[in-house]
Amino acid sequence: MLEIRKEEGHPSRWAITRAWTGDLEGCEADEIMVHVSKCKECTEILKILEMQKQEFVNSPVMTRTRMRLKNESKSGVRYFAMKILRIKLLVPAISLAAAAIALALFFPKIGRQDIESPYATRSKGAKGLELHYALLTSSGPVERKSGDLLDPGSRIQFMFKADAPGFLYMASLDSRGKVTALYPGTTKNKPVSPGRMSPLPNSIILDDASFERVFALLCPDPLPRNRLEHVLALEFAEKGSVRRIEHVSMGHCEQVYVDLPRRLP
């Protein structure tokens, strides 16, 4: 359809512009350009368009805008590069999160299995408290028994189960007499829920001590802060060796311990 202003007998300025810029093609454009070449008024429009273009091309506006577009298109490339980078970072992040979730789901399962497992570690003297631990490896947690040889630098996770409500305290004493508090840490100690296997909030990394014994106590009443660590230090000073400490003088608390000997290089 030839865009002609019938009321005037001329193509519209829009149609002339489109034909001139090449936006309109074929017969329509040809017809318009034929009309323009014969019409003085329409030739004027064309001349103005040409002058307008010339003026714009020579103006700094043309260059400035082109530069900005160039920069924006480059930033577009940067954007996509960042997007790819984000994806590259996202995949390991998701994998780690999935592993953590799997771990969290897996531990209670191990705990439940351990209760019936012949390899479960029931420490000496414990009646109402069980203490277990697992070695955390790249392929997942591996259940270990008290006395199993471990490599320095290994990461282990403790789990416990109490038959009655009470307050849990845990600390380790190594062959050098070093005492480390494991639970309750810096937070306020709350009574543990009986009847289910629960992991400690944090895993631990074994240092290069040749031997370490981890004590867990379940007490009916809360104890003063650092009491267990203090008593362990006194016991070590008195007996001279961690292997000789099988019982901690702590009133009516249920007690268990786990030995963590190191594999010597």
């Binding site: 810029t21 273009k53 714009f56 506006v61 043309m62 805008t65």
Partner: peptide, 28 residues
């Protein structure tokens, strides 16, 4: 498209906005 139509778009932006600075910003 910029090479082909920028001057047309600039002219119509200037016509509508009546200001060269605004028209340049609009073109961009």
């Amino acid at each position: 498209l910029y090479d082909k139509y920028a001057h047309i778009i600039y002219a119509r932006c200037l016509g509508l906005l009546g200001d060269r600075v605004d028209a340049e910003e609009a073109l961009q």
